[in-house]
């Protein structure tokens, strides 16, 4: 592992977390971003759950692709295999957490079932393959993307909590103002483009 490789990992980390933020520039995981960002507490819970699942899913999907699908020339099955891996993983994680750490389950449990259809999870797994990442790169990319997701959703929740007491024009109350906030956030994140 030479220094070039480490620099490369750092670039992947920064670009996945900020520049290509899964939500604000790739539009993956919009549903939870808009749906459960009204409280910081739930946003943090969702973010942590997503971080755990995306990182694990990146490892599993990367392994499955490199050691099963690719050698057997079954690349075209990746979508179906990945979604099954993710669905099974989420179920498993839910059962394990429930059994061994009730406290953690109380905190994250309600968000886990939502994650199967979170397109960020499948999206990141597919992107890892698309960009030809190896296992370590996939893990870094998965973790960083999830970190970006958490940053975006927590920031959004923070802003929304404050906006609750603001005087917003009737027309923009609710969904529209959330989207306007997202617009401004996306613009701000657009500024990270020059980083790498």
């Amino acid at each position: 592992m030479n220094s070039d490789y480490l620099v490369n990992l750092l670039i992947i980390l920064i670009s996945a977390a900020f520049i290509n933020n899964v939500i604000l520039s790739q539009f993956l995981g919009i549903c939870p971003f808009l749906g459960i960002s009204n409280k910081i507490k739930s946003a943090v819970g969702m973010g942590l759950a997503v971080m755990f699942v995306i990182t694990t899913a990146s490892i599993l999907c990367s392994l499955v692709f490199q050691y099963i699908l690719d050698p057997m020339n079954l690349q075209y099955l990746q979508t179906i295999v990945f979604i099954i891996v993710i669905a099974a993983l989420v179920q498993l994680v839910e059962m394990v957490i429930k059994k061994f750490s009730p406290t953690l389950y109380d905190a994250l449990g309600v968000y886990l079932p939502l994650i199967t259809t979170n397109c960020a999870v499948l999206g990141v797994a597919l992107l890892n393959v698309d960009k030809g990442f190896d296992l370590v790169e996939s893990i870094v990319n998965g973790f960083a993307s999830a970190l970006g997701f958490t940053i975006a959703i927590v920031l959004m929740a923070g802003i929304r909590e404050r906006m609750e007491h603001n005087d917003i024009p009737e027309t923009f109350k609710g969904f529209p103002i959330t989207l306007v906030t997202a617009t401004l956030m996306a613009m701000a994140f657009y500024g990270f483009a020059g980083l790498v």
Binding site: E170, F172, P176, L179, A182, T183, A186
Partner: peptide, 26 residues
Amino acid sequence: KPPGAFLVLAVLTALQNKFRLPSATN
């Protein structure tokens, strides 16, 4: 670019609110 997507949808849903069109948002 990405911000434009959010903005267009924001305006669209605001219009739906304004005219009280049937929508999950209002």
